[in-house]
Design a binder for these strands. Sequence first.
DNA 1: CTGTGTGCAAAGCATTTGCAAAATA
DNA 2: TATTTTGCAAATGCTTTGCACACAG
Lengths: 138, 138
Amino acid sequence: MNKINDIFKDKNLKLTPQRYAIYKFLKSVKTHPSAEMIYNELKQDYPTMSLATVYKTLKTLIELNLVQELNVGEDNFRYDANVDIHPHIICLNCGKVDDIENTNFDNLKKDVLSYTDYDVLSYKLYFYGICSECKKGR
Amino acid sequence: MNKINDIFKDKNLKLTPQRYAIYKFLKSVKTHPSAEMIYNELKQDYPTMSLATVYKTLKTLIELNLVQELNVGEDNFRYDANVDIHPHIICLNCGKVDDIENTNFDNLKKDVLSYTDYDVLSYKLYFYGICSECKKGR
DNA sequence: CTGTGTGCAAAGCATTTGCAAAATA
DNA sequence: TATTTTGCAAATGCTTTGCACACAG
């Protein structure tokens, strides 16, 4: 995790323990947590950290393109330290957010370019369904 | 617009002038307005209507599958009376939300099915870029 | 040392809710 | 007439902000 160190130095930002912990946690996890979830998790190791710091740090990390924000359709945002464009799938039953991996939608952007007069810069794909655990439990 | 009349009758819901106006307005417009935008627009013809009624009506229309909610990544929701699954494109400069028409992403859902163990029920596609008006104005 | 970041509490905003009055079927 | 819906205001919940103190560089 040297990358973040250099990026922060580059921008004359301070890499505080809180910032490092939030990024490291997001990197280590595939659950796409909300700010509140991150806060509750890190409270154990950083009991004095406030929710406001989590929000401020997330905003900073997004500006540095180290984290992306997901809008799955809940009342809050989810965060993902994998900033590559990749689709997500949300369980309509338990609310879990998963990556869809190994897919290749590179051609999608090209397709869209031919249907619109926008300059297309990026995209977000959200799929909705029922996860395997929720399917079992019925 | 007989459809809405029958659907409301079916569910023993009352088709009030406010509800009808909100649906008719959404049907007539391609701008994917927010609740506030709808409210401001209809205030002219329905000066006593409240924002709360707009929200309540939108919720009802969504439950009836007459309207879909869009999560373009702003701090509020947008609404679309075209409930067919279709991609949207958002101008990062002016915030405009457009439909992408004539596209066919039917195969997309099938692709995803092969990459996930979810039952895939629906999906939302959001593209981001710069619209032609904003491109000109530079 | 100096300026940036943290933590707290308060503020902001979109959305929801409770309830009495009004309107629909 | 019996419910449902409206409109108002207050409440809610997520996120942001202001500010004094603490801390990283």
